[in-house]
Amino acid sequence: MNSAVVVFPGINRERDMARALRLASGCEPAMVWHADTALPGGTDLVVVPGGFSYGDYLRCGAIAARAPIMDAVRAHAGRGGLVLGVCNGFQILCEAGLLPGVLMRNTAMKFICRDVYLRIERSDTPFTRGYNAGQVIRVPVAHGEGNYIADDATIARLEGEGRVLFRYADPGGALDPAWNVNGATNAIAGVLNEGGNVLGLMPHPENHVEAVLGPTDGRGLFAGLVDHFKQAA
């Protein structure tokens, strides 16, 4: 799996993401600078990592979404290429129009860093094939604006088309407002685009991939992607 990690000024989880990709695939991902206009040839997966691109100064992800490299990311997605946006990356993909909806301020009005439980809604996608539907995974969140919202029609469509892949849940997998860490609509933690090839996810699976540091529930996402490309090859 050849992956490219897009780095905007202010992005700060690119190393975490690169490590997770390396551990899962055995290949060092290419780090692509925001001012570049093209992705490296043969890129399978584009990852927009977490951080505070441009300080999140206008709106989270707003400025990064308009950076030169984003045209290449859009083109990659347009060709059906896989794109994963995590945390700030999710916000950037929304601002770039690659995903529907907006990530608003957490309802608690605070930045929150803690482990959360996610229920996997489907396992028949390249992003979730490493998990089973209904499985509950434990991964950390670290964000101040992860409260996913969209208009009713969009939400209805996302739900109707099975494009919600991850939801905040209790450790048993039940939906419970007390476990919806940021107050997201329908406890949405991760959504797919219409084509099924662009995923936005608020929590950080890349921080739970090494057994020596604790839980490894984030591995499934990366391992699944590696399998996907192996099978395709």
Binding site: N12, D16, R19, A20, K110, C113, R114, A142, N207, L213
Partner: peptide, 24 residues
């Protein structure tokens, strides 16, 4: 400490709440 990102960089072995933090 939940308002502090204590897991970024992926090296936090012991998180806040113990005697000392351990960072790989």
């Amino acid at each position: 400490w939940e308002q502090y990102d204590h897991v970024i960089l992926g090296n936090t072995v012991q998180r806040p709440g113990g005697d000392a933090a351990v960072v790989r």
